[in-house]
């Protein structure tokens, strides 16, 4: 299941942030991706909530600042 979630998160991020699917890895974060600004962070969170049918608390939203932490955030909800 972890692999499946990881892959789906990767797809959502690729779509919303408009980055190459293959380029998304452990070092993908708000610091390294220019388009991943605060507005797109909200877009990303809303798209993840739509994709996985979950809702994140504000604390969780603020902690999901990189690809690994987004995956961890989704897995914690699933």
């Amino acid at each position: 299941m972890t692999a499946d979630v990881t892959e789906r998160v990767r797809q959502v991020m690729a779509d919303i942030l408009q980055i190459d699917l293959a380029a998304i890895g452990d070092d993908t974060s708000m610091d390294t991706v220019e388009q991943w600004d605060s507005a797109n962070h909200i877009n990303l969170v809303l798209a993840l909530e739509e994709e996985f049918g979950v809702a994140f608390d504000v604390g969780e939203i603020e902690a999901m600042t990189s690809f690994p932490s987004v995956v961890a955030g989704v897995l914690a909800k699933a």
Partner: peptide, 11 residues
């Protein structure tokens, strides 16, 4: 339907 498709089209 959903945000991913909308973003894809919009871009």
């Amino acid at each position: 339907p959903g945000r991913r498709s909308c973003r894809y089209l919009s871009e």
